[in-house]
Simulated scan of single mutants.
Amino acid sequence: MRWEQLFADMEAQLASARQLDLEEEAAEQARAEYSRVRLADRLRLRRGEPVRALLTGAVPVEGRVRAVGSGWVALEDRGVEHLVPLGAVLWWESLGRGWTPGEDGVALRLGLGHALRALARDRARVRVRLAGGGPLGELDGTVDRVGADFVDLALHPDDDYRRRGSVTALRAVPFSAVVCVSSLTAG
């Protein structure tokens, strides 16, 4: 009788050790899987949901996630759209704990240049916030042209459309200096 109890106790200990090993392996596998999660994976899951971020230069921005590309996210807040390079974000809030693994088709392959070229096509008036901020850290105008790693911004009076005679300056802004590009007209 004592032998049966001894063997039963040994079997219970082995089963417990196997269960503990399985749990540790599952936890390690979850950590390894999460180590491959990109910020874009978490943002894609929040599409249509509100998020908050603090950008370089202590610029807060919030809005609903509209699109996620390669290195950027588009947010919309009460009709104002913000194009935010992911490298200009100091922290995100309200991302939740989940993520959507893998590529998101064409949108995730499109870089910041593609998004800016769409703004150039639309001749949208924008405000470009620059790294470093300060009094000269915001430029209002129209995206004129987009190069491989810079954007030409035509500065002109707020009450005028982008016309040759109304342009007061043409500034070439490196992508690395862009913190946020926001629409100036709601809708």
Rank of each mutant, 00 (worst) to 15 (best):
M1W: 11
A8S: 08
M10T: 14
A15Q: 15
R18N: 12
Q19G: 06
L20V: 10
D21M: 09
E24T: 12
Q29W: 07
Q29D: 11
R31Y: 05
R36N: 13
R36M: 11
R42H: 12
R47S: 08
G48I: 01
A58M: 03
P60H: 06
V61I: 07
E62H: 05
V65S: 05
V65L: 09
A67Q: 15
D77Y: 00
G79P: 03
H82P: 00
L83C: 00
A88P: 01
A88K: 00
L90E: 12
L95H: 08
R97M: 09
R97T: 10
G98I: 12
T100K: 10
T100G: 03
P101V: 01
G102D: 13
A107I: 02
R109P: 03
R109C: 11
G113D: 06
R117K: 10
A118Q: 11
R125S: 01
V126K: 00
G132L: 13
P135S: 11
P135H: 12
E138Y: 04
D144H: 07
R145L: 13
D149L: 06
H156N: 05
V167D: 04
V167R: 02
T168R: 15
T168F: 05
R171D: 05
A172S: 15
P174D: 06
V178C: 07
V179G: 00
C180K: 00
C180G: 00
S182E: 12
S183G: 12
L184Y: 04
